[in-house]
Nucleic acid binder design. Structure first.
Lengths: 334, 334
DNA sequence: CTGAAAGCGCTTACAG
DNA sequence: CTGAAAGCGCTTACAG
């Protein structure tokens, strides 16, 4: 059973496909189609359940009404929550989302951009990998809206939405210092992106500003691709061999691994040993004791992203680029 | 800067677009294009970075190579993990995923199917809502591959992949009974789907089989749309007003709410009070004490789904429907 | 060994 | 007030 086409509707209504098309696209009045014809055609459309073929429409108009979402890993709760919020907002404006995960691999990210390009997505929301600058620049040159989020690529002149990680980890570290902590560790990842670098810089600056000496061996750099067991082993080693009295984790999954490490060690979080996580995770609040964390306001981030996208999509002229920085909040839970 | 078309390539190569098309689609040999021409055209394609317009290709061939994924909520970790696994597997076969969340609303689900239909997705992976039978039947009638997962709609003759929830919650309840529990509560949701009904039936049957009396007031039915604070209040009420010594939660988010309730009450999980969750969640293992749970094997489920999809997509004839039931496992953690 | 032409289902400038 | 026709970028049956 082949689906109906505009031709079938035109035939049934005894009008041309031009007329049907105008009515479908709300241009009936503008094109001064008579009310009688509009009524008749609309009745047939409703009764037959005809839905225009968007693929044909896309080929003709050049718009697909699809937004490409490229993230590190859609199963990471930070990204899946953002994805959900973006989906909701985009949906209301008639846009659908096609997603894919880069796993932080530059080759995969490049391939994804190419695939999305050949599918003619209208706009891109990308949590980029370093090394993707050139590919994104090509999109920008072709005047396709691009919003970077979570991670900025400073060399690129395009839109960006993200949190102020420097400030947030500065504050988190400072809160440790105010509690009298002296040996504050940072567990971070080796992903080479500005966002992660900022978290380290904020930590370091805070320590130096408070005249504590910066101890290089208290910074643990976990390779991104490393499996969790190895990560837990490394964290246990860090905490066993040193007199660390506080740990800041630079991502939510590292904090989760850290909590598992503590559990294995039988080490308690108390007045002698403090922990702060990054991003939120249900496990943080539920943990005994609850874990303080640096929270990125997901709703605000998603809102900013979709606003930028829609502004670009509805404007013929190229809009000025915006770099939107949203305050992450330190949520103290003990 | 307009992207290159097949016409541009043909022009540059001094051949017809037919020839270029054959080469692009690997039909060069079959169509006996000379090696010299193949070489020349391929060189131009590589150098120019030409990528065929998939929208045009889709309009012509009728295939989009896009699979529609319709779930309850993409930000729920059960679904986002499945989404990630499916994405990986589909990607390797050249398929992309377009997703959307139904929020368990039948109208939204129907709308999504319509939107995906007009975008001509090649196949559907649906975690359905009751009431969607007719719309899905239309897809089946049109010979479009449909795989239901997580929830079956028994009236529909189509493919399904899911866990044996009856068996799993029977076992979980039985494990409580073997621990000597007498007043076992079930916290479940009011979503009217077989999957949830099975969890209740397994619980009830297990209780009756072990000659414990079934107490209706120990089953708490949480409305799906209810906000979490209200849910926590209800769980606290259940645990305060009764002598419940064990609780089985029918979903992961209900278990999380339950753990929050316990934390608020200051009630400990110990030899006098046991808890089992559903699906997994990082918070379960990390919790003090760790929370036992019924785990659905996500990898197996995703694998089964994608296998069914690909089999359907690559077969011209309609394949026999399969209902694949995968064993959920009770993971005891204390 | 290769190409001209039809057609997928739409939109829209143009004509009347 | 309405329609015939061109064209979006491909694929493929057919012809030579």
């Amino acid at each position: 059973m082949k689906p109906l086409s505009i031709k079938d509707i035109a035939l049934k209504a005894g009008v041309s496909i031009t007329t049907v098309s105008f009515i479908l696209n709300g241009k009936a009045k503008e094109k001064s189609i008579s009310d009688a014809v509009i009524k008749k055609v609309q009745k047939i459309i409703t009764e037959s359940g005809y839905k225009p073929n968007q693929v044909a429409r896309s080929l003709r108009t050049g718009n697909t009404n699809i937004i490409g979402l490229i993230v590190e890993d859609i199963s990471n709760s930070f990204f899946s929550r953002i994805a959900r919020l973006i989906e909701d907002k985009a949906y209301k404006k008639g846009y659908k989302i096609i997603y894919s995960s880069t796993e932080n691999k530059i080759e995969k990210a490049q391939e994804l951009i190419n695939i999305f390009k050949s599918r003619k997505v209208d706009a891109y929301i990308i949590s980029p990998v370093k090394g993707l600058e050139e590919d994104i620049q090509v999109l920008i040159d072709e005047n396709i809206p691009v919003i970077l989020f979570d991670r900025n690529l400073p060399e690129l002149k395009t839109n960006y939405v993200g949190a102020n990680h420097f400030e947030a980890s500065y504050q988190a570290t400072e809160s440790f210092i105010k509690q009298g902590k002296k040996n504050i560790a940072l567990v971070t990842t080796d992903i080479d992106v500005q966002q992660i670098a900022e978290r380290f810089e904020g930590y370091k600056k805070s320590i130096l500003d408070h005249t504590i000496s910066y101890q290089k061996d208290l910074v643990l750099n976990i390779p991104f691709k490393q499996n969790e067991d190895e990560t837990i082993t490394q964290i246990i080693a860090l905490l066993t061999n040193s007199n660390v009295d506080a740990v800041l984790f630079a991502t939510n999954y590292l904090a989760i691994s850290g909590l598992k490490a503590l559990k294995q060690m039988g080490k308690k979080i108390d007045s002698n040993f403090a922990v702060i996580g990054y991003d939120d995770h249900e496990a943080f609040e539920l943990h005994t004791p609850s874990i303080s964390t640096i929270q990125q306001p997901l709703e605000e981030i998603a809102e900013a992203i979709i606003k930028l996208i829609l502004a670009q999509l509805s404007s013929k002229a190229k809009l000025p680029d915006q770099k939107i920085v949203i305050s992450a909040k330190l949520i103290l839970r003990n």
